[in-house]
Computed example of a mutant assay.
Amino acid sequence: MKNLQEATERICELQGSLIASDALFSAFLEAWLPATRDTLARSFEMHTDAARTVMLNTAVSDSALAAFERDVARMRAVLAEPAPTQAPLEPRHAIEPVLLATTHIRTYAGSQLSTSASGFFFRRDDRLFLVTNLHVFADEPSGHFPDRVEIELHTDTSDLTQYATFSIPLYGNGIALWRQATDTAGSVDIAAIEIQSDRLPERTMLQAFDTSHLAPQGEDVVIGDNLTVIGFPLGFHDTVHHLAVARSASIASAYGVRFQQQGYFLTDARTHRGSSGSPVLRRRSGVQSRDSLLPWQLLGVHSTRMDMRTRDLAQDESLGLNCAWYADVLMVLTRPA
């Protein structure tokens, strides 16, 4: 009786193992490409014929042979089924919305391309602004005075390769149209220019930060915190889908303290020209959402690299530190006139 019970338990175990193997086999089939499935089907037929020949020439019961043929027929039917198709995700769900909140900026003097930079969108009530560094719009030391900028805007929710170039004049009747600010230390290297929403290309698809992204929402921001800088270093980006790239960074000076009494803090990151105007972001730990801008806290706007004039270029590496102007100045730059 004991041997019969053990045999029954063993048969049940084998049945469970076979069912689990079937489930794994089906999962593999769904993951494989059609060409791989075809190759597997041909290989299966070859090995099935070999196994059948062996079974017919050995002492195998008719029950075992019948079970073999039954399972072969079942597996052959599974292999013949068409591969399941999955509807592609819409781009607005397939990519981080924060990438649609940043844009590539090109500055022009007339028809002459001057520089390349980064920027992002900020919404205050029903008004939309393009934010970047002040020195992108005007920089007296370098003699940089463009009269307009061009940005790229996505126009198709299902095809990110579709975009429109949108031109924004920097002057009206000889007067600068952007907004800038000063503090006790002088000029702040952040500027915002309002975008007339009714002039945007049809079906424009963009995201924008707002005042809620400036608030800490009860979380402490401290030195060493991980940051993300999203922009267009050296103009580099996904030129097919017109999307920015992200660089990792960290807070390198006391956050909340004006470094050297200037309106910025320091970040530790590898940055390049063209990153000017990039949003400096911190992912909030208490908010988990891939489909919105909610997880991001806008801490600053990347400006320039920080270095020592006394550094020996032959012996000392660059500090790898950068200036990020505190983003709370946007509350001043975007308030109603």
Rank of each mutant, 00 (worst) to 15 (best):
A23D: 08
L24F: 11
L24N: 13
F25K: 01
F25P: 01
S26Y: 00
A27M: 12
A27Y: 07
A27F: 06
A27D: 07
F28C: 11
F28Q: 05
F28V: 10
L29G: 03
L29W: 02
E30Y: 00
E30I: 04
E30W: 01
E30Q: 07
A31T: 07
A31G: 08
A31E: 13
A31F: 08
W32R: 00
L33G: 02
L33S: 09
L33Y: 02
L33A: 10
P34H: 05
P34V: 01
P34N: 03
P34G: 03
P34K: 03
P34S: 03
A35F: 04
A35Q: 14
A35Y: 08
A35W: 07
T36P: 02
T36I: 06
T36F: 03
T36H: 02
T36V: 07
T36Y: 03
T36K: 04
T36S: 02
R37F: 03
R37A: 00
R37Y: 00
D38G: 04
D38E: 15
T39Y: 00
T39A: 13
T39M: 09
T39G: 09
T39K: 10
L40E: 00
L40P: 03
L40W: 07
A41N: 06
A41W: 00
A41M: 08
A41C: 09
R42C: 13
R42E: 08
R42V: 14
S43Y: 06
S43Q: 12
S43W: 06
S43E: 09
E45D: 13
E45K: 11
E45L: 13
M46Q: 13
M46R: 09
M46I: 14
M46N: 11
M46Y: 10
M46L: 14
H47T: 15
T48Y: 01
T48S: 06
T48A: 01
T48K: 03
D49S: 15
D49I: 14
A50K: 06
A51K: 02
A51E: 04
R52Y: 03
R52L: 11
R52P: 02
T53S: 09
T53P: 08
T53G: 06
V54M: 09
V54Y: 08
